[in-house]
Design a protein around this nucleic acid. Structure first.
Lengths: 212, 212
DNA sequence: ATGAAACGGATATGATGTATCCGCATCGTG
DNA sequence: CACGATGCGGATACATCATATCCGTTTCAT
């Protein structure tokens, strides 16, 4: 609860409103954080972010106590947008198609955001607003997967628990050596999706999802 | 060419044979390197390796100028064994099955060897003996893929260049949070392989392999 | 026995990221 | 306008950590 307040809506509690320039700078920092984390990943320094924002380091550290605080603010937003996309997908008729489209859209975002990818990889983020957003996405995916199964277009034995590993796999392709701006991940997503479709010749899958 | 000699067969050039205890220690270090790199990855310190071998740091640094030298020795061996497996696979009748089995075998090794996984991920190793071994594997894979295509069991448009990304994808699953000793990667390999089989309903793949 | 070879491991070195501190600039209210 | 209060800048102290060396001690081999 100690770090939570940083960079938050100052309406709550006894926090006074920021001076106008300070508020502007806070936005600049957020924007710089988005850009820098997307381009260089989470290992980027708050000093990097500050420089990118055209501000001094001290300014950044006053608004956000540490890198994690800023990252949390930046990526909660990103995750919420993905959750929204999943929610929208639930409305489509063809459930498998909706699932496929959602995956493509979410991964599209990841493709342009190294920081987001790193975040999804490592951080089993504890409490934080991130965890909440992530849970929301999971829930929507459950719906998506459930509907596809019900429509009989999703291969027997595939569950929501498979979604994260699949995303992780595509993410791995994005991180491959020479092809930073490449689109080749779509190729592999297509292959996986074909392996995910219900099909008479598909044999039962091994290892019932002991995945997360 | 400067680091090349380290830990090598001392027969060549004017190098005198090692004292018996020294030779023994060299083996101990190699073995410790295998175990430590496999368990803790490439970021393990030569100090770690030394301790694991029950030796002092200095001893390790005398035999291997730096971590890279030791890693090269350790993993060249590993890669060569994989290359051998690929070579053997070429002899089987069912080319697709052979390819699948080879992938499973190679990934099996990776599953038990975090260092190997990290090595395949990052290092576009330059010259080194590793590069040679890796090239060998690539060559064998070309054969495997070629035969499967010829037999018509491999999906249209799949090439040798797809193998590395596929391995990378499975590797990503192995690195997932809670499931260190898990076997769930086999599940995803099965899915991908099903997406890789020749099938009338498969649509053409996007993005002709601009992968490595 | 004795010189050469090898060992041990404390520690110097260097690289890197984090976060503070405080003199100076800017804001905004009276 | 003027004068606190608030915010800014960024050099730098601090901490962490892997790397690699050095040399007094021990072991080998003749």
């Amino acid at each position: 609860m100690s770090r939570k307040e940083a960079g938050q809506d100052p309406v709550a509690a006894g926090a006074r409103p920021l001076r106008r320039d300070a508020e502007l700078n806070r936005r600049r920092i957020l924007q710089a954080g988005r850009e820098v984390f997307a381009a260089r990943g989470l290992q980027a320094t708050l000093n990097d972010v500050a420089h990118h924002a055209g501000l001094g380091v001290g300014t950044v550290y006053r608004k956000f106590p540490d890198k994690q605080a800023l990252a949390e603010a930046v990526f909660t937003e990103e995750l919420n947008q993905i959750a929204a996309a999943a929610y929208k997908a639930l409305a489509e008729d063809d459930a498998f198609g909706a699932l496929a489209d959602f995956l493509e859209k979410a991964l599209e975002r990841a493709a342009h955001n190294r920081g987001l990818r790193e975040l999804m990889r490592h951080h089993t983020f504890e409490d934080t607003a991130l965890a909440q957003a992530r849970r929301e996405i999971t829930t929507q995916c459950e719906g998506l997967v459930g509907r596809a199964r019900a429509q009989g277009t999703l291969r027997e034995g595939v569950t929501e628990a498979d979604i994260a590993p699949i995303a992780a796999m595509i993410d791995a392709v994005m991180g491959l050596p020479g092809e930073r701006p490449s689109e080749s991940w779509r190729r592999y997503l297509a292959i996986i999706l074909d392996g995910l479709r219900a099909h008479p010749e598909h044999t039962p899958l091994p290892a019932p999802g002991d995945a997360l």
